[in-house]
Design a protein around this nucleic acid. Structure first.
Lengths: 234, 234
DNA sequence: CGGTATCTGTGCGCTAGCGTCCCGACAGCG
DNA sequence: CGCTGTCGGGACGCTAGCGCACAGATACCG
């Protein structure tokens, strides 16, 4: 069920001034990311800055003695590695490929050169970092207050936005890992959503049937994250 | 019980190169922050950048239909308003004075001037933002996984670090608000800590008795936040 | 000195989510 | 074709935290 509305681009790059964008894209290397590939580990040096196109990436924070927890999702609307802007070259988070597909990337020196050459580029990335900070704060609150079913709906909607499709591949087990709950908790919530004909799934492939319905079920954090993005990034 | 070891300074400023630091401090206005004063509201323009000295500030994220939630604590080791660096002049969070006391501050134009004049200053603030991002991610995980008692212990230790004292004023009610739980939940956890002679409190004033013991009870997030700070900020 | 507001402690029933274990169904592989 | 691994579903008792309501205790204020 492909609905590839202009998926072969990264918005951060495509909304730059024509010249700057072209130059930076030309400097990029095109790579194919594959599911479950690790792009960065917390505490280790970032090697490349990624601009996903059809692919998307989870950012995950490790917790001793507990499962890990996803705190962000980066698709063609964003970038992984923008923290380099802050003058620290290690990754704060684990970056894990969630959705296979093409991505552009820059090595760190090339990235630094691009920043110097294009103030518009740097400005855009700074703004993006601001959005990410807001989303992190939102995630903290979301994890504290919202129920699994609402968080699941949110996650599905976020993923849909980044996959540019209403279907994608994901198991309950993996969802549980992302949301920091038991697999059984996901099964229960997913069953409930399916019962209301909002989604439909089978052995690792899931389809969103009723987007408006899901939005109603999802916690406000979905809308809030989106609002933060559009407000800041235009 | 004052233990004011060099509390009348802000580390971010005092660790700048001599000249830069002196010039920026000279540009600052000294103000006295008082408990429960609001310094910024989410979505509204930031008016001043604050460098707390003996005072400290909570950063709080609002959640519709639930209590709000503290996601950060800024004392003399930090700054409020550094997000201006990212090119967005609205505050992502609610900034609420937690501990009364002196602070330095800069108006936004003066802040921008200082950034231009001192690359070291800008570098330091960028690094601080990186630390804040790590702490936000940590907070997300902490809220998901850790029990009230551990989170309370963590909060007390963090506050102690920023108050530069083992005693401070805070009610269960307010703690509940900060941690996003019921007041009763705090009472229960606090009673347990007091029972083990780790703390002692009475009608809004609390004293930490056994720091090592509290560290053992607190979740790893306390150590983790601190490690992130010292690793990056030196 | 008495009244009132604030702060802390308790009790009660309830729910979401946990940990664990087991089962059935399907897919893919040899 | 049958084995094996993966995926989803269900059941068990348990705990942390919730919402609510109320009671004692202390501080403060008139």
């Amino acid at each position: 069920m492909p609905s590839n509305r202009s998926a072969a681009t990264n918005q951060l790059l495509s909304t730059l001034p024509r010249q700057d964008g072209a130059r930076i894209i030309a400097a990029c290397e095109a790579v194919e990311l594959s599911f479950s590939e690790t792009l960065a580990e917390p505490g280790e040096r970032i090697r490349h800055v990624y601009f996903p196109m059809a692919s998307f990436i989870s950012t995950i924070t490790p917790v001793r003695d507990h499962g890990n927890l996803e705190v962000g999702l980066v698709g063609s609307e964003g970038v992984f590695g923008a923290t380099l802007l802050l003058g620290v070259d290690t990754s704060p988070l684990h970056a894990l490929v969630q959705g296979s597909g093409p991505s552009l990337r820059l090595g760190v020196p090339a990235f630094r050169r691009a920043l110097k050459q294009s103030p518009a580029f740097e400005r855009k990335l700074r703004n993006y970092l601001y959005v990410v900070m807001r989303q992190l704060a939102q995630a903290a609150a979301c994890n504290r207050f919202h129920l699994v079913e609402a968080r699941l709906a949110r996650w599905l909607l976020m993923t849909r936005d980044r996959a540019h499709a209403n279907s994608f591949h994901i198991t309950h087990d993996f969802l549980a890992y992302m949301l920091g709950v038991r697999r059984v908790g996901i099964t229960k919530a997913a069953t409930a959503l399916q019962g209301r004909a909002l989604i439909q799934y089978n052995r690792g492939s899931i389809t969103l049937l009723d987007i408006a319905g899901l939005k109603a079920v999802a916690c406000e954090c979905y809308a809030s994250d989106k609002a933060a993005y559009t407000e800041i990034m235009g």
